[in-house]
């Protein structure tokens, strides 16, 4: 990745959560997995949400990604409320505005590295020869040029996660959501992946929200939010907006 910064402004809000709540079950058995969350994340930010297992972090991420309907509250991505959307519109949001990175990579085992990336362009109706070229290019940029046609079973954990990052980036989404992206990686490759996401956020003007309880990556975040019992422990709103011309090279 290059080291060119993208200008951001304090008003350039990519993600905004207001009163976001998710309750599983009902009556005495009801569990408030996410309990009235407010959060604002601006373009170019890398936010890490940390917390113990079972605190509701992953539920929060699935709500943000439009994979789960909240019980109440709103999720705005680029100013658009996705909580009121029908499934077909949510599909479009996931296709064009959000990129997902998963703890267990979730690559399609039958496809090569480059096909795992290219398939996302196909789904967006941007398939064809150009899609393959773009997928190859992004993998080359992420240092995977020598593994383009390898199947996931032949890749290391770090390489799989790079393919996963490439897949999340390929449609140029504004928001990248990563669920424990370093959990299956060693102390060298774990931080490398987060550095990669940070570079993408800073240089390409994307926003990354990472759910993790990996303390090795804390220092790479613009903000760290502690999530416990469905709530942020401290005020999640940034005291200061990200620096307007913050530059971070990888």
């Amino acid at each position: 990745m290059g080291a060119q910064a993208v200008k951001t402004s304090a008003d350039d809000i990519v993600l905004e959560l207001r009163g976001l709540t998710k309750v599983f079950g009902s009556g005495a058995a009801a569990v408030r997995a996410v309990d009235g969350i407010d959060l604002t994340v601006r373009r170019g930010e890398l936010v890490i949400i940390m917390g113990p297992s079972g605190s509701g972090k992953t539920t929060l991420l699935t709500l943000i990604g439009g994979l789960l309907k909240p019980t109440s509250g709103t999720v705005h991505i680029n100013g658009i409320d996705i909580t009121a959307m029908k499934e077909s519109a949510l599909t479009q949001v996931r296709r064009h505005n959000v990129g997902f990175i998963f703890q267990s990579y979730n690559l399609l085992e039958s496809l090569s590295a480059v096909e795992n990336v290219e398939v996302v362009l196909d789904l967006a109706g941007r398939g064809g020869r150009g899609a393959a070229v773009k997928a190859e290019q992004i993998l080359v940029d992420l240092g995977m040029g020598h593994r383009l046609h390898f199947k996931p079973r032949d890749l290391s954990g770090g390489e799989k996660q790079r393919v996963s990052v490439a897949r999340a980036m390929i449609n140029d989404p504004d928001l990248m959501l990563a669920d424990e992206p370093t959990a299956n990686l060693d102390s060298k490759h774990g931080p490398e992946i987060v550095l990669l996401l940070r570079a993408v956020a800073k240089e390409l003007g994307r926003t990354a929200v990472i759910v993790s309880h990996d303390v090795r990556i804390q220092e790479l975040a613009d903000r760290i939010l502690w999530f416990e019992d469905g709530r942020f422990k401290d005020n999640p709103e940034p005291a200061v907006a990200p620096a307007e011309e913050k530059t971070t090279g990888v």
Partner: peptide, 10 residues
């Protein structure tokens, strides 16, 4: 796999 494809916009 189908779940992943749905998640990424299928």
């Amino acid at each position: 796999d189908y779940g992943v494809l749905k998640a990424v916009g299928a």
